[in-house]
Amino acid sequence: MPRSPLQIWWLVPIVAALALPPLLNGYWLHVLSVSWYYAILAASWALLAGYAGQFSFAHMAFAAIGGYASGLLAVDLHLPVPLGILCGIAAAGIVGAAIGWLCLRMRGPYLSLFTLAFALIFQLMLIAEYQFTRGSLGLSVPEIFAGRSDTPYYYTGFVLLLVSLSAMSFLLRSRVGIFLRALREDEDAAEACGIDTALYKILIFTVTSAIAGLAGGFYGHFVGILTPNLVTIPEMGLVVAMAVVGGVESLPGAVVGAVFVYVLSEVLRDTGQMRFVVLGLLIMLTQRYAQNGLWTLALGRGGRFWRRPPPRAVAPEAAAPAVERETNVG
């Protein structure tokens, strides 16, 4: 099957990202490496909130579960870091499944408040359980690579981002993608259509929490220290802002939003608190003029040349590829 121009187009940013490190100084290499962490979080939160309609504020808590689980296993049991990260992914996924199960009957603001309460309780636990987590002082965890260069972290983070995006895209291109969007649109109608909404709610919480756990594991072993500040409301707000600015109903949009917002905040670092004013205005303007995010705006304005025109009617032979196209992730 021939590749569409859109699929080939994706190679451009991938190749550019792979070629970038030699052109960057240490500071910007670090910034972009951290931005991959935020990109994984923003994309997985976009899958949870934008596609499945589960507006959770517990995402950073799942990242912290992954990070702390991996870090503690490495520190206390001297587990190899990759194995620790895998355990962190599993821990975040299991807790995510439990939260998904507890939230089955909750919708909209009730779900948001429940998950926010969970995140705050988890943050307090990290502070209170000092003997395990070292509380607010932070838990020093071993780094993945020896040496002081951020280059291996840059590539590791980028590969993890690509792997996460591939897994999420695979999910969205399967029938689960349509079920999740139906769940977002109307749970009762989805049930009437035969969709087991409880199953898919738990599934999406499990998957996105596990991915957040992966991001947390990577981040912890990258920066070398984990603190409860990982789970603060501003940190969660930053991830939400990244997804919203990029496009909360689009995985690439959330990734672009994460990199854009994080890089912009670093560019504006010298302006002090004013950078938060600029970022706030950016979110307000995006919500006012481009509710689907800057990515969708860019596709609509500048990206039409790679979009196929919609068929006028469904013919049986045309409908099958349409099924795949309609479940697109962009």
Partner: peptide
Amino acid sequence: RLFRRMTVLENLLA
């Protein structure tokens, strides 16, 4: 109670 932001075709596919 349609899936309003999904296409007509997707509403049938679900």
